[in-house]
Simulated scan of single mutants.
Amino acid sequence: MFTGIVEELGTVESVEDQGDAIRLTVRATTVLEGTGLGDSIAVNGCCLTVATRTDDTWTADVMQETLDKTSLHGVAPGDTVNLERAVTADKRLGGHIVQGHVDGVGTVLARTPSEHWEVVEVAMPEEMGRYLVDKGSITVDGVSLTVVEARPASFTVSLIPETLARTTLGHRQVGDRVNLETDVIAKHVAKLVAAYLPTSEHSKEQQA
């Protein structure tokens, strides 16, 4: 589990093509402190497992399923990525509960700068819209953010200078792909409530 508070910007050192997977090596410092083999690190919001490590790099195996459903498909040496270690029980939950399981890939639609923040609009798969509400939580490339406006097929967030400076969202451009994870609590509530809602067939029977 993660909190969506990026600890460090890492740099992709190498990408080894293994056919139906890649072996991803990332250069980092902070997230390697106290990290051992088998530990979890989120890369742009994707939970990956440390397979090997050195003093300043770590490597993870990324399966085809992850490549198919996240923006890690196409990652290249030199790319900057958001990194966060799994949260520990004694750590402050500064963001919200983040699993590191990407729900879909969005696209940056617009960036509107102002004096003290920047409003960013992101397109998302329409099926994710049911889990978003104004002032609710959304994870974008592993960054915990508050939804300003939830729309049917997109949403907006306001990025403060700290977020712009310390995460990859500071230089994402219109058209760039980003990983999205909706609030896990919203997903559980939606599933539980769905069992008590009338189906379309039931509604048709009542109308008849």
Score class of each variant (00 low, 15 high):
Gly129Met: 04
Gly129Tyr: 02
Gly129Arg: 12
Arg130Gly: 00
Arg130Met: 09
Tyr131Ser: 05
Tyr131Trp: 07
Tyr131Ile: 00
Tyr131His: 10
Tyr131Gln: 05
Leu132Glu: 04
Leu132Gly: 00
Leu132Ala: 07
Leu132Lys: 05
Leu132Val: 04
Leu132Asp: 01
Val133Ser: 10
Val133Glu: 10
Val133Arg: 08
Val133Met: 12
Val133Gly: 02
Asp134Met: 09
Lys135Leu: 06
Lys135Trp: 03
Lys135Gly: 07
Gly136Tyr: 03
Ser137Phe: 13
Ser137Trp: 09
Ser137Tyr: 13
Ser137Arg: 09
Ser137Pro: 00
Ser137Leu: 09
Ser137Asp: 08
Thr139Ser: 15
Thr139Val: 13
Thr139Cys: 15
Thr139Leu: 06
Thr139Ala: 15
Thr139Glu: 09
Val140Ala: 07
Asp141Tyr: 06
Asp141Lys: 11
Asp141Leu: 07
Asp141Val: 08
Gly142Val: 05
Val143Ile: 15
Val143Thr: 15
Val143Cys: 14
Val143Tyr: 07
Val143Trp: 06
Ser144Tyr: 06
Leu145Ser: 05
Leu145Gly: 00
Thr146Ala: 12
Thr146Pro: 00
Thr146Leu: 10
Val147Asn: 04
Val148Gly: 12
Val148Asn: 15
Val148Lys: 09
Val148Phe: 03
Val148Met: 11
Glu149Thr: 14
Glu149Arg: 13
Glu149Leu: 11
Glu149Phe: 02
Ala150Asn: 03
Arg151Lys: 15
Arg151Phe: 07
Arg151Ala: 14
Arg151Pro: 01
Pro152Leu: 13
Pro152Ile: 10
Pro152Val: 08
Pro152Asp: 13
Pro152Cys: 12
Pro152Arg: 14
Ala153Lys: 14
Ala153Glu: 15
Ala153Phe: 02
Ala153Gln: 15
Ala153Ser: 15
Ser154Asn: 12
Ser154Ile: 05
Phe155Tyr: 15
Phe155Pro: 00
Phe155Glu: 05
Thr156Glu: 14
Thr156Met: 13
Thr156His: 11
Thr156Leu: 13
Thr156Trp: 08
Val157Gly: 01
Val157Asp: 05
Val157Met: 09
Val157Leu: 09
Ser158Cys: 12
Ser158Asn: 14
Ser158His: 08
Ser158Gln: 14
Leu159Phe: 04
Leu159Trp: 05
Leu159Gly: 02
Ile160Asn: 05
Ile160Cys: 04
Ile160Phe: 07
Pro161Phe: 08
Pro161Tyr: 10
Pro161Gln: 14
Glu162Arg: 14
Thr163Phe: 06
Thr163Ser: 15
Thr163Trp: 08
Ala165Cys: 01
Ala165Met: 05
Ala165Ile: 02
Ala165Trp: 02
Ala165Phe: 02
Ala165Pro: 00
Arg166Met: 13
Arg166Asp: 11
Arg166Leu: 13
Arg166Tyr: 07
Arg166Asn: 14
Thr168Met: 09
Thr168Trp: 02
Thr168Gly: 11
Leu169Gln: 04
Leu169Gly: 01
Leu169Lys: 04
Leu169Ile: 07
Leu169Thr: 04
Gly170Asp: 03
His171Ile: 12
His171Thr: 15
Arg172Phe: 03
Arg172Cys: 06
Arg172Thr: 03
Arg172Gly: 01
Gln173Thr: 00
Gln173Lys: 10
Val174Trp: 02
Val174Arg: 03
Gly175Pro: 01
Gly175Arg: 12
Gly175Cys: 11
Asp176Leu: 04
Asp176Ser: 08
Arg177Ala: 14
Arg177Gln: 15
Arg177Ser: 13
Val178Phe: 01
Val178His: 03
Val178Arg: 01
Asn179Val: 02
Asn179Ser: 05
Asn179Ile: 03
